[in-house]
Amino acid sequence: MNERVIATNITKSFRSTKALDDVSFSVNEGELFGFIGPDGAGKSTLFRILTTVMNADSGDALVDGFHLKDEIAIRSRVGYMPGKFSLYPDLSVQENLEFFAKVFGTTVQENYSIIKEIYVQLEPFKDRRAGKLSGGMKQKLALCCALIHKPRVLFLDEPTTGVDPVSRREFWEMLGRLKQSGLTILVSTPYMDEASRCDRVALIQKGKILDIDPPGVITKKFPLHVIAVKSDNMQKLRKDILKVEDAESVYGFGEFLHITMKKENSSTEKIESLLKQQGHQHIEVKIIEAGIEDCFMHLMEHNKN
């Protein structure tokens, strides 16, 4: 398979903090690859290094066939949308776009087909200053500016952070369509539920990659049973559930609690009868498939030591 990004042993420290600790992975051509992890996991640092905005302490990467030291070659081949809005607020929508096209030696007309679908939504506001756009519109403009030089690899750093669930969904649908054109996309996010939108994901925490695989494979690998439990009294359930023997962890998941247990120990009947004894009603106990968030928390706990 054709690898568009190959990172090997990338390490980066800021004073005493290790932002990236020996990070290696590769991303295939045309892949939508997600880095899933909380703030401070090292996602932004990684993207800055791969787009040559920042130097690694050690390690290297090939980005579209070029080593990190070939800054100029890489910069013309990648599109980068940073987490913070970084367009020119005093330039209009159209001026921003033309500026970015010009910097890369191209024109908006030449590559218009790439951004067309996104840009039509911005067109009614093309004379508005970028700083005066709504959050969603700013995001779309930033994406257009990152795409206008027809990059081979697109880096999107937390494009959906702080964005409501509906707008997030729309953004991912847009990424799905961009991917159709063959573009390789690396995207970072703190939202675990977005993993399912990616071909493969790297779960990342404290500068370390905890696991890399397609999201469906990661959840299949989960070594324990996840048991979802609810009752008429969730407050009391949170306390009573601690009496379940052999539970490895208990976490809230929306209207349910998730208990994890070794498969050989897990018994929904046992849990149900315990809760009945404690006076719970409308009890629901069921073994469910693990989600990415279950997996992430499990990996976090097992990487503590």
Binding site: G37, P38, D39, A41, E158, T161, G162, P190, M192, Q205, Q235, Y251, G252, E293, F296, M297, M300, E301
Partner: peptide, 20 residues
């Protein structure tokens, strides 16, 4: 106001314990 935005899943849940 969005107290748990960008926080890891375990910390996010611990924060809700504090809310309770």
């Amino acid at each position: 106001d969005e107290p748990t935005s960008g926080v890891d899943p375990i910390t996010r849940r611990q924060f809700w314990d504090l809310i309770y």
